[in-house]
Simulated scan of single mutants.
Amino acid sequence: MESARTLSLPAEWRDFFALTKPRVMTLVIFTGLCGLLAAPGSIHPVLAFTAILCIAVGAGGAAALNQWWEADIDAGMKRTAQRPLPAGRMERESARDFGFALSGGSVLVMGLANGWLPAAILAFSIFYYAWIYTVWLKPRTPQNIVIGGGAGAFPPLIGWVAVTGHITLMPVLLFLIIFFWTPPHFWALALFVQTDYAKVGIPMMPVVAGEASTRRQILIYAALLLPLALVPWMIGGTGVVYGASALLLGIVFLALSTKVGLRRSVPGDGMLPEKRLFAFSILYLFALFAVLVADRFATLQGWQ
């Protein structure tokens, strides 16, 4: 009876869904949708839905391939030990095939429905995360998050190009904002889970370069992110709603990063500033892209 319950369809469905990293996918879907909604021009609602669905499915496929490749590493980390593969709830081949199916299907549908340029960008983003980051960068260099940050920066670019059919400066700026946001966001997390990475031999920045260097780099990237997030407003790509909001959000992000960057942790202190920065960094990105869409709507309505 216990075996039958373990192999029941609902449990299998939940495990396959878990392979897509749904919490991460939420941010991917949101930034992709915001890129689509903020883009000049119009798109049929069905095609818009298809584009966002393909972005989500492609991201899920890349996440499944990531977990297929890193199953042994995930088994050695407390934070990831209960994922479907290390927990023994699924065969590795199933995760691999699932990942390839989602990845290939999303690119094909995107190409047929929205054009081959956004499909090509989607395909490259999957390859970037599943191979360049997961297989090549992550186990070899402490710069894995810096370079690999590009993988999560593609969704707004894809959404924008799905509407306009071409790449311009604005979607590239949206890409760069996420690219520069990723290191302070992820390193804040890495600071309070660094023992996990050290245990499995992954050269994350706190493990290889030490806490002091990681903290300085968090502060540097946060300082660069503040003016970068204002560039869309400076070049006239957005209005004052976005500009004022980006400035306020950037100041708070920089203030929290400064607390992290200039402190030295003490064993047992709980790393509260690091956890606050990590939590706010997620809110920052959601808020910044939400304001981008609100600014677009305000402009269309003639409110600014």
Score class of each variant (00 low, 15 high):
Ile52Met: 03
Ala38Asn: 05
Gln82His: 06
Pro45Ala: 01
Thr50Phe: 02
Leu36Asn: 05
Ile43Thr: 12
Ala48Tyr: 13
Ile73Glu: 01
Ala51Ser: 11
Ala81Trp: 01
Asp74Thr: 07
Phe49Leu: 15
Asp72Phe: 03
Met77Leu: 10
Pro40Lys: 03
Gly35Gln: 09
Gly76Asn: 02
Gly35Arg: 01
Ala38Gly: 05
Gly58Cys: 06
Pro45Asn: 02
Ile55Glu: 01
Ala59Ser: 15
Phe49Val: 05
Met77Ser: 14
Glu70Leu: 09
Ile43Ala: 14
Ala81Thr: 05
Lys78Asn: 13
Gly76Ser: 13
Thr80Arg: 10
Gly41Asn: 07
Pro45Gly: 00
Ala48Gln: 09
Met77Gly: 15
Arg83Ala: 04
Leu37Gln: 06
Gly58Tyr: 03
Pro84Arg: 09
Lys78Ala: 14
Val57Glu: 07
Lys78Met: 01
Pro45Trp: 00
Ala39Met: 10
Gly41Arg: 14
Ala64Ser: 15
Leu47Tyr: 15
Ser42Phe: 13
Asn66Thr: 09
Pro84Met: 02
His44Phe: 08
Trp69Thr: 08
Gly61Ala: 05
Ala75Val: 04
Leu47Ile: 10
Arg83Glu: 01
Ser42Trp: 14
Leu53Trp: 08
Val46Pro: 03
Asn66Tyr: 10
Trp69Asp: 00
Ser42Met: 11
Thr50Ser: 15
Ala71Phe: 01
Trp69Gln: 06
Arg79Pro: 09
Gly58His: 05
Val46Tyr: 06
